[in-house]
Each structure stands twice: as C-alpha cells, then as structure tokens.
Amino acid sequence: MSEPGESSMMDVVPMSARRSTQSDGDFAELFAATYPQVVRTAWFVTHDRAAAEEVAQEAFTELFRGWSRLRDFDRPDLWVRRVAIRKAQREASRRTRRTALERAAATVPTVADGLDLPDPELIAAIRSLPPKQRAIVVLFYLEDRPMDEVADLVGCSTSTGFVHLHHARRRLAAVLGEEVGSDVD
C-alpha cells in the first residue's frame, strides 16, 4: 500500500531528442485513428471548434513528447483521450467563468459555434451542465462507453460517475421537457 510521505507524482515526461521512423509511424497511425474523435468529444465539452482542436493537439503533443515510453502502454489512445477530456473540462470551466463575465457585460454567448445543429436545444441543455457532467454524457451516450471507462476518462470513481450521470440526466430531462422514465422506442 502507499505510505504517507510517498508522493505518487510522476516525473515530467521528457522530450525525446530522436525518434525512430518506426516510432513516428506508429504515432502517426494512432493520431490518424484517434484525433478526429478526440476533437469531437472535446467539442461536446467546450462547444468551440478551435478550443476543441487546441485541446486535442495539446493532449497529443504531450503524448508525442512521451511517446518513447507511452507507446508501450496497453492503450495509449485511452491515455490521450483522458488527457484531452480533462483539458476540455478545464477549458469549459474557464469559459464558464468567462461567460459569466460576458453575461454581466450583456454579451450573449453563442452555442452553435457556427454549425447548423439538428437539436440545438439539446446542445444548449448539455452546455448548461457542469463540464464533468457534459463529458460523462458524451462518453456514455455518444461513445457508448461503459461507466467504468467513462469514470476513468473524466477522473472520478465509478460510483461518482454514476451519480453525475443521474443528475445530468434528470437536469436534461427537466430542461428539455422529456420524461425521465418513459420507455425507449
């Protein structure tokens, strides 16, 4: 077991000066397969395309810096998703504060990010959730991940993730005027 006085902090991932062609190829392959979905997930948390892309690129940059070691992980794709999702949550929190200030200045924030959204009420309702709940809703409903994995990605225990989902679902139902318990078609 861990002991008091034992910090579990890890060293900063060093930048490797040289990488093999094979290693770069592996990274590029993972990037191509994972980056678009990471951007999409980040968008559902931040509701901003530029922010979502930057968040995703920051996460992949950290993966790239530690690639010589992180490539040996069982699921480096989950690692980078986790980093990106947590960065997206922080970005969304930052934007929430900013939005409050902008509201005070009577500047109405936009939700659509210039997109033609098929269900803008839903997206607006999701945006009203705390960032962690947004991420949980997206990972759970859109990406269809089991709650264990969802909780790991957003950074909470499974039980806490479950409770967050419960509250998010109830809030969305209330905002959207849907019934919480009606049967699925």
């Binding site: 269900d119 839903l122 809703v137 409903y141 679902r169 969305l172 849907e178 699925v184």
Partner: peptide, 9 residues
C-alpha cells in the same frame, strides 16, 4: 425517452 433524445441528438 430522455435517453433516446440525448443519444439521437
């Protein structure tokens, strides 16, 4: 249902 609305949306 709210689940279907969320998922479909």
């Amino acid at each position: 249902s709210i689940d279907q609305r969320i998922r479909d949306g």
